[in-house]
Design a protein around this nucleic acid. Sequence first.
DNA 1: GGAACTAATAGTCTCTACGACTATAAAGAG
DNA 2: CTCTTTATAGTCGTAGAGACTATTAGTTCC
Lengths: 239, 239
Amino acid sequence: MQGYDKYAFEPFAVTVDLAVLTLRADTLHVLLVERGQEPYAGQWALPGGFLLPRESAETAARRELAEETGLSDVSGLHLEQLRTYSGPDRDPRMRVVSVAFTALLPDAPEPHGGGDAAQARWLPYDPARPLAFDHERILADAHERVGGQLEYSCLATAFCPPEFTLGELQNVYETVWGVALDRPNFRRKVLATPDFVEPVPGAARLTGGRGKPAALYRAGTATALHPPLLRPSREGRPA
Amino acid sequence: MQGYDKYAFEPFAVTVDLAVLTLRADTLHVLLVERGQEPYAGQWALPGGFLLPRESAETAARRELAEETGLSDVSGLHLEQLRTYSGPDRDPRMRVVSVAFTALLPDAPEPHGGGDAAQARWLPYDPARPLAFDHERILADAHERVGGQLEYSCLATAFCPPEFTLGELQNVYETVWGVALDRPNFRRKVLATPDFVEPVPGAARLTGGRGKPAALYRAGTATALHPPLLRPSREGRPA
DNA sequence: GGAACTAATAGTCTCTACGACTATAAAGAG
DNA sequence: CTCTTTATAGTCGTAGAGACTATTAGTTCC
């Protein structure tokens, strides 16, 4: 099977699907679009689309991300391939192989209506929300993957604006994992990890809300956490 | 872009590529095939092939795995999607999107010549070995992924036969990571992790080689390691 | 203006678990 | 029998995580 002998292959449609996650008001939100046509007309779906003839999946994903979020500069955002979904009956009309991506954003403005009729909106992440095609599964996989990556990478800063407080960073962990963390311990751990975050020279946030103003930090140069920051209380066998 | 409007899509060829890894004589080996035709005729490549019309990538990968290894029962082997490679110039003849998989085997017999002219062989893993297409990159990604997964999953047993000694299990880690581990500490860690391995009731391996005979273990029911078994000495920032 | 509240930050104590060891046991090779 | 090799047992010191308490510096409410 190593030669593509005599062009003996079946043509497939190839798409990208995006699980775009963000934090709004301490809740995990997902970018969803409402389908305007059959199948699954009127249902929510992950944004996505076909690869252009000379595009890689990564390029197509970033293009879709820009189109769907309406953000002018999407180049710094975290975008990562999740996995590929290739079941033969994913789409009732034809054979579609879809490369799924996960994108993480700091809180973003409401997307505009997109190019076509269907609307795009930020909706709270809810594993029970029915989605078109196998997008429920893709979204669940994305959530699981991101949750796992928080443990041993510095990914959490991708949810934060350029300057953030340690409380905001902790909110990322608590929201994605759905658990409460001890504030002093979290702080100690983050500051003990070299180059995870670095303090912003002057300034301490003032009138943001109640309580003592917090110091501001920027994302550091580290990409991995050694040792990792493990989720609490997972006795036994997770996925 | 959420509707597949008017079938406005480009057809692609979709293939699977397999990075099949095993341990032979305490060395990491890869299953490679020699290409019989252009392009890259005579060069080594990862085994793989086209998806059949109603196959998922996973199904195709397991079929290819059975064909290329010549093993009769391939159902219990560890097979996992790695990622998808979709650069527009991967194959000089046409647009090919390839879903790559990683497979882990206990030491396996030399594969037979396969269905077509090209030969298939186990060769020592060597990141510097030139491969056809972008297979060098795929293989490097597979190695990196497997190395990382050893840290927080029970994947290492996938390289071992049904019954194995702790020394063999330690060899998996040392070979894949390319580092030496302390034997008593490794043993303590593995046995302290619930359900990572379980002792085989009777029996202790006898005349295998020199030294005191080792007890035999089987893979347990656990799939994840909490806390993880981290690679030593990675100060700073790995991938 | 003070009291109550809220969140950030500092610091303590304990215990687990890992790294670095030393020691012993059980086989084969010579 | 001795040497070598590998498996297994156990010890000691320390980094780091969990569970706390305490203090500080702002808001909000009366």
